[in-house]
Simulated assay, not measured.
Amino acid sequence: MLIHPQFDPAALRIGSFAVHWYGLMYLLAFMQFLMFGRLRVRAPRYQALGWTYKDLENLLFAGVLGVVLGGRLGYVLFYMPIFYFSNPLNIFKIWEGGMSFHGGLLGVLLALWWFAKKKKTSFFVVSDLVAPLIPFGLAFGRLGNFINGELWGRPSDLPWAMIFPLVDSIPRHPSQIYQLLGEGVLLGIVLWIYSSKPRRIGQVSGLFLLGYGVCRFMAEFAREPDAFLGLLGFGLSMGQWLCIPMIFFGIYLLRHQSDDAHA
């Protein structure tokens, strides 16, 4: 069996100053957004719409705010509302952990809506630009989860099962790696290839919602549910229940969005 290496949470220490792995993963996620986003805005269909690299930087800034605020509020509302409503000051203690992808997604959607209004363009034009850039950023986040030894999997007897010593001595699914490969690398490659040709407005966004929803839903079967929630109705986790509307809305966008193709 494999044993988690128990990495030092800090990637770099200089005296009392430390750069933590998870913060570094966020930085790498934002860097890849700008790097691959530059290629996206250079495409003829976005050049025809007047997109510039400055637009991409502004979009990233708005998206970061959406991720942080939405991710935190999503965790508060979806996972531990009673605790945080009883201890409201704890909502601001982000350094203690507690972020929700689905809350972060809602925050990003609001940021995209704001940017689309400012740019005077369709919301789905903006979301189609951004969608292929998100999975690779998620992959860095899941790598950070693995390095920190958090969000571990359910018990398993598979050859690659891993013991997380800070949890217990039971071999478990390295579910962080499953998510890194599924909703991160695989979905990113599929979206990049799919978006390389003109699609109806909203289709790229729809494929992201469908692809992420399916990958996350499947990975949750190997991921240990939050101890304070456990499994909910029909034996599904909170993460799986939150993925279901994503899947249906993704299918809707793929099938029913505007027939107007990108320029």
Rank of each mutant, 00 (worst) to 15 (best):
A139L: 10
A131M: 06
L112D: 02
W95I: 00
I170F: 02
I134Q: 08
L109G: 00
L158F: 15
L166Q: 15
N87R: 07
L109H: 00
L110P: 04
F136C: 08
A161Y: 05
S127T: 15
L129D: 06
P135H: 13
K117D: 10
D128E: 12
L151S: 04
F124H: 08
L109Y: 00
L106C: 09
A111Q: 07
K119D: 03
F85G: 08
V126E: 07
K120E: 14
A139Y: 06
P135V: 11
L143P: 01
E96F: 00
S86W: 06
P155I: 01
A116G: 11
I170T: 14
L129R: 05
I91D: 08
E150M: 11
A131I: 03
H102A: 03
S122Q: 13
L143M: 13
G104C: 07
K93F: 15
I94N: 03
Y84R: 08
G144V: 01
G98Y: 09
F123G: 05
V126Y: 09
P88L: 10
G104R: 03
G144N: 01
F124S: 02
S156T: 12
P132K: 06
M162T: 14
R154S: 11
K120I: 01
P155R: 04
S127M: 12
N90R: 15
V126P: 07
F83W: 14
L129Y: 09
G107R: 04
Y84D: 07
N145T: 05
P132L: 04
L133Y: 05
V130S: 04
S169V: 06
D168Y: 02
Y84W: 10
L143V: 12
L105I: 11
S122H: 12
G98F: 08
L106K: 00
M99W: 06
S156I: 05
L133R: 06
N90C: 03
V108E: 01
L133I: 10
L112E: 07
W113D: 06
S86C: 00
I170M: 10
W95K: 02
S100E: 07
Y84I: 08
D157W: 02
V126M: 10
D168N: 13
M99C: 01
G107M: 07
I163P: 02
I82L: 15
W113L: 15
L158T: 11
L133D: 10
K119R: 15
L138T: 05
G103T: 06
L133P: 06
N87S: 10
